[in-house]
Structures are given as structure tokens and as C-alpha cells.
Design a protein around this nucleic acid. Structure first.
Lengths: 224, 224
DNA sequence: TGCCGTATTATGGTATACCATCATACAGTA
DNA sequence: TACTGTATGATGGTATACCATAATACGGCA
């Protein structure tokens, strides 16, 4: 019965909800809707070719994720982001990522090290190419490996959600040139520290990286 | 125009969704539905006297909160909790609470100190009375003041959500007698440390408290 | 009597219908 | 012309209808 032919078919009905959820989340994160912009249901339905039921359920989900706000008596808008919130998000990310990197460094194995180095490599290539979307994707993958290696799946989900909320900031901070040391260089430090099992150094590298990103973000949010 | 009579009426339409959301969240957290139990929509509608639309939108929201899981092709069930997840949740709470207490100790003011002491007082009274629900409520209020004093509203939301997911464990760990030092005693340590502005001591007290709770929880989850 | 196929039911997924409310535009009146 | 009241439209809130699928029960056939 371990025959792969006869193993259970993983029949995932992929509902419209799932698709719409993915699409709308992506649209918000990638900045196709401006923060504060109203999400009027019926036009969205027309655009996506689905019923209001589906769109509304999606909106509820994204509301809980913090990507959408509901103005009582008005309706849904794309969530806005204040510097007060963004600042906290960076601080929380720092805690989560530091803990994950520490644990990951403790659990390091040759395979894990290989995965990390490969992810770093892809990241550097994406940066060299200079296209924002692959850069973000590669960065995400790099961190995913770290959290995965730490066994911190709950923290990973939280971190991902927080990242969604600061996505606009990230898009800019990742590619901005005004940082003393560019993001990828920090990533390399982080990678090396983890691979060599040096939790202390990993912690320092992440702190450096995030405080850097935080300050860039601060300038951005305050100048607007 | 600053006349209070003529000031804007804050008209919050309190939708059915809001009510149902509150009710169902409360029902799950308070354990009226067992983990893994199916949440069949139509019976819920009958019970609550609302349409499926409302119940389904609520389920989406609670799904994103992690209180409800959707079995693909089956339907919604009350989220289950593994020890692997619970353990991580306690670790994350420790980070968030430590950070909040540290910051709160740094920002301590006489009013804040008063609030904290009052909350501790209520908590001790609730514990003396021995009724679980007020105990949980008072504990929540105590922490709310700490997070509020730290200005960590984002972290507070995350902590609250995590607490929802481990609510069953909390109900027991709060009242269990097998801990070396009972919960309220830890709370007193935390309160004193914060009031005296001693961030270091606050951190130690929280660590103590949570590692204690975590171990009680571990025994619980593993014996089942 | 036991097994297989079909009818029935339970249930979630999706679409639509209807209503209330709020904003806007328009028209009538002073 | 300015103001007010009403009609109209836009939009979210809620209920209901309908469909597909999976589980269950039942009945016939060997």
C-alpha cells in the first residue's frame, strides 16, 4: 500500500475563494491599490468575474490579516500604515528573526547550510539583475529557510503577515542605495554566521540589517 | 462648536457580523466547542438566528485568526493545537511580553504605576474568589496595561491572538496548583519590577512566569 | 445473507436578490 | 439666487436560492 500509484490523491478543490484571496493579497502587497483606497465590492467582482460572496469573504480574511481596514458604515479600504505601527513591526520582526537565526544556527546541518547558501546565491543574482519582485521573492525564500531550519513555523506566519503590512516600505528599502551597507551584504553576514553556527554573530547581523531597514523606512514614511 | 451637544455622534452601526464574530470567538475560546469539532454552518445559523452569509464571513475571519481551520473539501473545524505550536506560542509570548515590560518599565509614570497596581489587586481578588473567567479577564487587563504603557499595540494584538489559540491551556495553567510559585505571585513580581523601573527584574519575572506556564502546558498536552 | 448500485441527504461553494443608508443631484419655491 | 425637500444612485449588509459533491441509507440481486 506504499505504492505511489495507489497513494491518496491530494485532491485540493482550489476554491474561488483561495484564488481570489491570493490575487487580492498580491494586488495589495504589490501596491496595485494605494493605501486608504476604497475597495468597492461590485467593481472588484466584475473585474475578477466572481460574485460578491467570494469577494466579501476574501475581504474578511484580509481584514483579519491587517491588509484591509473596515471603516464602519463606509466599507473596506486598503490598510494604511503609520510610522508608529511600522516601527513596532520592525521591532517585532527583529525579535522573531533573531530568535529564528539563533535556533537555526544551533540546528545547523550540512544540507541546511547548502540550502541557505543557494538561497543567498539566488538573492544576489536577483539583486544584480535589479528587478524588485524577484528580489523580494528571494529574500522571502532566504528567511523561510531560516525559520524552517529553526522549526519556527508559527513565528514565520506572523513574520509573513507583518511583512505584508509593510510591503510598500520593503519594496523601497530593499532597493534603496542610501544604506551604508546594502541589504544583500547583511544577508551574507547572516548566512555566514548561521552556517558557522555562530548564533551571536547571526544575532548581531540581523540587528544591524533591521535597524538599517527601519531607519530607511522612517525617512520614507516621514517625508510623505 | 466645541459644545458637546453638537459634537459628532459616533454612530457605530454594530453589524450582525461583529456580534456573531464576538460570540463565536468567545464560544471557541471558552471551550464551548471542542478542538477538531466540525462547525456546521446551517445549525450555527439556526442557533444564532442569522443567515449563512454572516456565519461564513465570521468563519473566514476566525480562520485568519487561527481559531478555525478549514479542511479542504470538508469544511470548517475548531482549530486543533499541537504541542509543537503551543511551545512556539509560549516562546513568542515571552519575547513580546518581555519587550513590553521592559519598555513599560522605562516609561513608568505614577499614573501607570497606579493602574498596574489596581489591576494586580483585581487579579488577586479574582484568584481569591477562584472563578476562572474573571481570573482570565483580570490577567488580560493586567497585560493590556503593560503593553499599552509600552506603546506596543501591534504586539498586543499579536499576543491576544496567540492567547486565543492557547486558551484552553491557559484556563488550566492559570488555575492549576502544581506550579512551584502560583501565577499571581509572578504577576506581583512583574508589577513590582515595572513600577520600580527595573527592566531587568521585570524580564526575569516574565521569563520565570512563562517558562512555568509552558511546562505546565506541556504536561497537559502530552498526557492527553 | 452479503454485496453492490442507486436514491437521498447533508453540507459547503457560489450566485443572486433585496433592503437600508448615505451621498448626490435636481427641481421647485420663496 | 439661495435654500430645501425629494428623487435617484451607489454601496454595504443580510438573506436566500441553487448547485456540486461526498457521505449515508436503502433496496435489489446473486
Amino acid at each position: 500500500m506504499t505504492n505511489p500509484i495507489m497513494s491518496k490523491i491530494d485532491h485540493q478543490p482550489q476554491t474561488l475563494r483561495d484564488i481570489v484571496q491570493e490575487r487580492m493579497r498580491e494586488a495589495i502587497i504589490s501596491g496595485q491599490f494605494a493605501p486608504g483606497e476604497r475597495l468597492v465590492e461590485r467593481p472588484l467582482c466584475d473585474q475578477l468575474g466572481v460574485s460578491r460572496t467570494v469577494v466579501r469573504e476574501t475581504i474578511r480574511y484580509l481584514e483579519a490579516e491587517g491588509l484591509v481596514e473596515i471603516l464602519p458604515g463606509k466599507g473596506p479600504i486598503v490598510a494604511r500604515l503609520t510610522w508608529a505601527d511600522a516601527r513596532q513591526i520592525y521591532d517585532i520582526r527583529q525579535m522573531l528573526e533573531t530568535a529564528a537565526a539563533t535556533e537555526c544556527a544551533r540546528n545547523i546541518t550540512p544540507q541546511l547550510a547548502e540550502q541557505l547558501k543557494a538561497a543567498l546565491q539566488s538573492l544576489q543574482e536577483a539583486v544584480a539583475a535589479g528587478v524588485p519582485t524577484p528580489m523580494l521573492r528571494a529574500t522571502t525564500e532566504f528567511y523561510r529557510i531560516i525559520f524552517d531550519g529553526a522549526g519556527h513555523n508559527v513565528a514565520w506566519e506572523i513574520a509573513q503577515r507583518l511583512n505584508g503590512r509593510i510591503s510598500r516600505l520593503r519594496a523601497v528599502t530593499l532597493s534603496t542605495a542610501e544604506r551604508q551597507k546594502p541589504g544583500p551584504a547583511h544577508m551574507q553576514d547572516i548566512c555566514e554566521a548561521i552556517v558557522s553556527g555562530d548564533a551571536k554573530a547571526a544575532q548581531a547581523a540581523i540587528e544591524q540589517h533591521l535597524s538599517d531597514a527601519k531607519h530607511t523606512a522612517e525617512r520614507l514614511l516621514n517625508e510623505k
